[in-house]
């Protein structure tokens, strides 16, 4: 028996909007500590890892670990039918081939039930080692989204370089080049507006902007984004979900031949 009640249903709506274009189908793994998802995109160049911990739910019941295969496009269609202020409850029974999404309006005068067919997805679960990163940049998520969008109008790859001067985003294309440098800036009124650069070693890596722009669909989830880089690992672009968990995007770099 599985029943999770999320008062801030809009969070789940935003999570789906942030991953449904990157990943088509995924297994949702439910355990007593929360639910998670790990899935690569079809090209295996990017990986999304989602975690929503049980303490973020008003009510969380998961009698035994279970995994449910869902088509994220269909799930998004159903969640789009939930109001932004609705309470969303996910219900599932062991052995059932459907999952139910229940939407309750804040005044409890409207209750909707959407039942979605589950699917069998045989996805490998990858081991993601904890790592020491050469550089970790924490910045306003809107700023990162703006940079990725702007650079994508000039080129299709971005070189992200972290030095003691700051973090530089560069691209080049047929019409020319663009360089955007952000310096560490902690003298701001609100902490979420700060750009904080933790650099253990300088690092510079190249990535496809198409994926970065897909990741920025998670911007509504968090005011800040953290970008962690090491030359021998995929970059991690993380959007924390306040008191609940995170959406992490891993992107493999492009290497000079």
């Amino acid at each position: 028996m599985l029943e999770l009640r999320l008062v801030q249903g809009s969070l789940l709506k935003k999570v789906l909007e942030s991953i449904k274009d990157l990943v088509n189908d995924a297994n949702f793994d439910f355990s007593s500590s929360g639910f998670s998802l790990q899935s690569m995109d079809s090209s295996h160049v990017a990986l999304v890892a989602l975690l929503l911990k049980s303490e973020g739910f008003e009510h969380y019941r998961c009698d035994r670990n279970t995994s449910m295969g869902m088509n994220l496009g269909n799930m998004s269609k159903m969640l789009k039918c939930a109001g932004n202020d609705d309470i969303i409850t996910i219900k599932g029974d062991d052995g059932s081939d459907t999952v139910t999404f229940m939407f309750e309006s804040p005044t409890q005068d409207k209750i909707a039930d959407f039942e979605m067919k589950l699917m069998d997805i045989d996805s490998e679960h990858l081991g993601i080692p904890e790592a020491e990163y050469h550089a970790i940049v924490k910045m306003p998520s809107a700023e990162f989204a703006r940079i990725c969008k702007d650079l994508a109008s000039i080129g299709d790859t971005v070189v992200i370089s972290v030095t003691k001067e700051g973090v530089k985003f560069s691209t080049r294309g047929d019409i020319g080049t663009a360089n955007i440098v952000l310096r560490q800036n902690t003298t701001v009124d609100k902490p979420e507006d700060a750009t904080v650069i933790e650099m253990n070693e300088p690092v510079s890596m190249t990535f496809a902007l198409r994926y970065m722009n897909s990741f920025t669909k998670a911007t509504p989830l968090s005011n800040t984004v953290t970008i962690s880089m090491s030359p021998d690992l995929p970059v991690v672009v993380e959007y924390k979900i306040a008191e609940m968990g995170y959406v992490r995007f891993y992107l493999a770099p492009k290497m000079e031949e």
Binding site: V45, A46, G127, P234, A252, K254
Partner: peptide, 14 residues
Amino acid sequence: PCLQRTILDYFKDD
């Protein structure tokens, strides 16, 4: 030209 690596170049099956 740049060679696009994949996730599987870095992370192995559990």
